[in-house]
Amino acid sequence: MSKLKILTYSVIILVILNLSMIVFFMVVKPREFRNHRNGPRKMIIEKLHLDKQQQEQFESLVEKHIDKIKTFDKQIQQTKESLYAQLSQPKVDVKVKDSLITSLGDLQKQIEIARFNHFKNIREICNTPEQREDFKELSVELSKMFSHRRMSHARDNQKK
């Protein structure tokens, strides 16, 4: 076989592989991400054996919670931008820096309070003894899940 034919086949194979990867990342991965994102919702509904009415209440609680967290996330982002903008100043204003860092801590505290209240509200829609018992088990899993997320997020940030 000539070098030209080998080169031609190699290019064709590479083009097919690249197109396959593009299709994979555009079609398969977003679907997988959506399923992952809804994973906790589905898990909570299944673990607590929520009926239709409870599921509607749950979805309403989740939407309100997401909106609240998004607001805090925006505030955190703006505060961080202000904080790091201090680095462009000839001299960093220590009072401003400390104030912004304190604000970040307060915002994170508000997020944790919002999460706690969110799960407390979910507990309140559990109206059978079995669901309340299932919620106790779920609360242990949730604490592990949130602490695992923080740890993996911290590891990801250290790698960068």
Rank of each mutant, 00 (worst) to 15 (best):
M1P: 08
K3H: 12
L4G: 02
I6Y: 13
T8L: 10
V11E: 06
I13L: 13
I16W: 01
I16N: 06
L17Y: 08
L17R: 00
L19Y: 11
S20G: 15
S20V: 13
V23Q: 07
V23W: 08
V23D: 04
V28H: 10
K29S: 08
K29A: 13
P30G: 04
P30T: 05
E32H: 14
F33S: 01
N38H: 13
G39E: 10
P40F: 12
L50W: 01
D51S: 03
K52H: 14
Q55M: 12
E56H: 06
L61V: 05
H65N: 09
I66C: 03
D67F: 09
D67N: 15
K68W: 02
T71L: 08
T71K: 14
Q75K: 13
T79F: 04
K80G: 00
K80S: 04
E81V: 05
E81C: 05
A85N: 12
L87R: 01
K97C: 06
L100H: 06
I101A: 14
D106H: 10
D106G: 04
Q108C: 05
Q110V: 04
I111Q: 07
R115K: 15
H118L: 07
H118P: 02
H118F: 11
N121C: 08
N121W: 05
N127E: 14
T128H: 07
R132D: 06
R132K: 15
V140A: 10
S143T: 12
K144I: 09
R149Y: 06
M151Q: 12
H153L: 13
Q158R: 14
